[in-house]
Amino acid sequence: MAINIIGVGLGRTGTYSLKLAINQLGHGPCFHMEEVLKNMDVQVPLWSEAVKGNSNWNAIYDGFNSSVDWPTAGFFRELIKEYPTAKFILTERNPENWADSFGSTIYKLVEGKDKAPEKMHNWLDMCIEVITKSGFPLGMDRNGLINGFIAHNKAVREIIPEEQLLIYQVKDGWEPLCEFLNSPVPNESFPNTNNREEFWELVNAGN
């Protein structure tokens, strides 16, 4: 089973809502950082090796048809080579709003690694490696985060062929996503989830 839909938008751009939407459209199961948290013993070593250039995508995505969020988003250059016919989705949002959201959730979490339970440390180390690879080493200020976000999205546009890439905001709902994936528009409302409070609930579930 090879994944054929790859979300390359950074975390905190509506990736969890996109995961739910992709599953609802029948293109799942969709891989998300949540899957790493649920299966840390297997997934964390695989992703740590991928950062070093020793990727085993078949093992990472075993049982999945699609993927969104980090860690995936940090590997768009590798994944377009591994899956040259896949469809890619770049979730975007206002850069300033993204920096505020990222800074108060993911970045805050990894910067406070030493305060986390011991069993979370390997996962957090991997997260630090992945977000650093994505252009966000520890210690950046808000302007640095904003510029890094803009740079990531620019690089995606430059590397992924235009005909394979959907530039998307989850607030736009079903229509552009369904058109891109050749799927009928559901009658149900578009899923809208994973605000900042839900982020911490998701992380704490892995403790």
Rank of each mutant, 00 (worst) to 15 (best):
L145D: 02
T132D: 02
N23Y: 04
E34V: 09
R93Q: 09
L109W: 11
E162V: 12
P186G: 04
E49G: 01
L37N: 05
D172C: 01
K133V: 02
A151D: 10
D172W: 08
E163S: 14
F180M: 10
L20T: 10
H27E: 11
I6N: 05
S104W: 00
K154P: 00
S48M: 15
G11W: 05
K154V: 05
G144Q: 07
A21P: 01
S104V: 04
E118P: 00
L46I: 05
H27R: 15
E129H: 03
S55A: 15
G148E: 02
G103S: 11
S189M: 14
R12S: 05
Y16T: 12
T91Y: 04
G14E: 09
I5G: 03
I146K: 14
F88N: 05
W200T: 03
L20D: 01
E197C: 02
Q24P: 00
P137W: 08
A2C: 02
W57A: 09
A99Y: 09
K52S: 12
A99N: 10
N187V: 10
R142S: 03
P117S: 06
H32C: 08
I6D: 03
V185G: 01
D100R: 15
N143R: 12
L18W: 04
T13F: 01
F149Y: 15
R157P: 01
L37F: 12
E162N: 11
P191I: 11
P29L: 08
W200F: 15
L177V: 05
W98P: 01
E96Y: 04
E111N: 12
T132Q: 03
P71N: 11
P117M: 10
P186I: 11
W47C: 08
N195D: 15
I131R: 01
F199Q: 07
G139C: 05
M40Q: 15
Y107I: 11
V130N: 05
K38E: 06
D141G: 12
P191E: 03
G7A: 10
P137L: 09
T91P: 00
V36N: 03
P161W: 07
L177S: 09
L20E: 07
Y107K: 13
G9A: 08
Q164R: 15
G53V: 10
I128E: 04
L145I: 10
Q43V: 03
I146T: 09
N192L: 14
M120Q: 11
G26H: 07
L46Q: 08
F199H: 07
N204M: 10
P161L: 13
K119E: 08
S48Y: 01
I22S: 00
W123S: 04
I106P: 00
T193K: 15
T72R: 13
N97G: 12
N143W: 01
G63F: 13
Q43E: 10
A73G: 06
T105F: 06
E175V: 01
